[in-house]
Each structure stands twice: as structure tokens, then as C-alpha cells.
């Protein structure tokens, strides 16, 4: 019985040694992997795609700069337009007010724009 156990242990040890050796031997004989066919074409496609993306990125940066510069100018233009329209409306309102006074109270300015008679002097 003991002999049998001893023999079994020896067999197991030999098997382990054999497995270890064979596994370590593979270290010297590792397979070289090769790329799939068409690697360059796929790479080239990716590079072109990246270049396109970079172009888009460049354009967007340019656009952003333009937008940034345009914003204060646009704001100033809006303010100016607002003032212009505002003043125009004020003029119209003043004219309306004068018309109302004339109609209601008969108050009016003389037809001639000359207020002082310079001839008699």
C-alpha cells in the first residue's frame, strides 16, 4: 500500500516536472502574431478621418473666435439701433402732442417760422 502511494506520488511529481518544463519551453517558441490583411488601408482611412476631424475642429475654433469678437460689436449695434428707434419714436410722440394742442386749444405756432419781425426793427 505504501509502495503504491509512493509510486503515485512519484508519478505525480514527474508529471508536474514534465508540465513545468514543457510550459517553460514554450517561452522560447512563442508564436508571432501577424496583422490582418489591409492594415495599412485601415490605418490610412483612420488618418484621413482624423485629418477631417482636425479640419472641422480648426473651423469651429475660427468660428468661435469670430463669434467672440462679433458679440460686443453686435451688442453695440443693437444698442445703437435701439437708441435710434427710441429717438425716432420720441420725435413722433412730440409731433403728435403738438397736433393735439393745436386741435384742442387752437394754440399754434405762426405759419411763418420767423418769430421776430426783423424788418420793422
Amino acid at each position: 500500500m505504501q509502495k503504491q502511494e509512493k509510486a503515485m506520488r512519484k508519478t505525480a511529481k514527474n508529471k508536474i516536472d514534465n508540465d513545468v518544463l514543457k510550459t517553460l519551453d514554450l517561452l522560447e517558441d512563442l508564436t508571432q502574431e501577424k496583422v490582418r490583411h489591409g492594415f495599412y488601408q485601415r490605418l490610412n482611412y483612420q488618418i484621413e478621418h482624423l485629418e477631417e476631424e482636425q479640419e472641422i475642429a480648426k473651423v469651429s475654433v475660427f468660428t468661435r473666435v469670430i463669434r467672440l469678437a462679433a458679440t460686443p460689436a453686435l451688442a453695440a449695434a443693437c444698442i445703437a439701433l435701439g437708441i435710434f428707434i427710441g429717438l425716432g419714436t420720441a420725435d413722433i410722440k412730440t409731433d403728435d402732442y403738438v397736433d393735439t394742442l393745436v386741435k384742442t386749444y387752437g394754440i399754434g405756432l405762426p405759419e411763418t417760422p420767423q418769430l421776430f419781425n426783423t424788418e420793422s426793427q
Binding site: 512563442l30 508571432q32 502574431e33 501577424k34 496583422v35 490582418r36 492594415f39 485601415r42 483612420q46
Partner: peptide
Amino acid sequence: DHVYNTCFSFVKNKEDAEDIAQ
């Protein structure tokens, strides 16, 4: 092949190795 093989030996996945090689 060398670049791909190096990448493959680390990542052990063909698609990933090709992406990294690119």
C-alpha cells in the same frame, strides 16, 4: 507585424492590438 505582435503580447486581444498598433 512587430508593432502588432508587441501590442498583442500585452493585451491578448486581436481587435484591441490592431487599434493600439494603429
